[in-house]
Computed example of a mutant assay.
Amino acid sequence: MTSKRDSEKTIARILETAQKLFFEKGYDNTTMQDIIDYGFSKGSIYHHFKSKKEIFDHIMMGLEGQENQFKYYLELDDKTSLQRLRLLFLNRLNDYSKADLLSGAREMFNDPKIFGELYQMNMTHVLPRIEQFIIEGNTDGSMQCQSPFECAELITYFFSIWIGTMLYDVNISQLKSKIEFYQSLFKGLGVDLLDAELVECIIVYYKRITKVA
């Protein structure tokens, strides 16, 4: 039992140290040796994590808090499913710790293998939860979507892939144009998701990731 607790503490320290370094230096400029130099043995680091990418994945999953977040918003009693889905994304977009981490790791997503893993993770874990919101929205009348799975796939792509990674830069005018397109698309599919508050949060989040003024 003690050994397990010690192992958990070591993992937590590694993740905390790595996150600090990723914020300060950026993901691309941080090496495994940088993390080791903060008081870890090489054996200890590589016993728990095979690579810097694996450490990054664990940090991202911790920041996402996906399962707990989805469960919390799905179970809100005083909101429609559409309102709960908006609140979920508002919460995620206002998590600037994630935005700051991503801003230092954008080059990483140019690696097709890493991008593919990210895409698969979101389509496996996020898409089914979004679909559940839509199905419940159809039931409570806040959404009228005939294709819940396909619409959930588009929403997952929009927030987790396009907004989440920002693989290529656009100016603010182009960003607003893209948002308007998806706003119209989602509304046409029966999920009027992108209200004014959420749109403004997307713009602020984008500026923070890309460092656009």
Rank of each mutant, 00 (worst) to 15 (best):
R129S: 08
E131N: 07
L102T: 12
S51D: 00
R84F: 06
L102M: 14
E117L: 10
Y27A: 02
I172S: 05
S7H: 10
M32Y: 03
Q69C: 12
M60V: 12
R5G: 09
F186H: 02
G164H: 05
F181K: 06
F181V: 11
Y206R: 03
G43E: 02
L101P: 04
A18R: 01
A18E: 00
S7E: 15
H47N: 15
Q120P: 07
Q174C: 05
F56E: 00
N110R: 14
L154R: 01
S160G: 12
D57E: 13
Q174G: 07
S44F: 05
Q144L: 15
L194W: 02
T2V: 14
L102W: 14
M61T: 10
S7K: 15
T124L: 13
K4V: 13
Y119W: 14
L21S: 04
D6S: 12
S3K: 14
Y38N: 15
K113P: 09
F186P: 00
T139Q: 15
D6G: 10
T17P: 05
K207E: 09
E64W: 14
I55N: 02
V199H: 02
F49D: 04
G65H: 07
T165G: 08
I202G: 01
I155C: 04
L118E: 14
E131M: 08
K20D: 15
Q144E: 13
K178Q: 13
A99S: 06
M32Q: 08
Q83K: 10
V170F: 05
D195T: 06
D95S: 07
E200R: 08
Y157E: 06
E200K: 07
S147T: 13
G26Y: 02
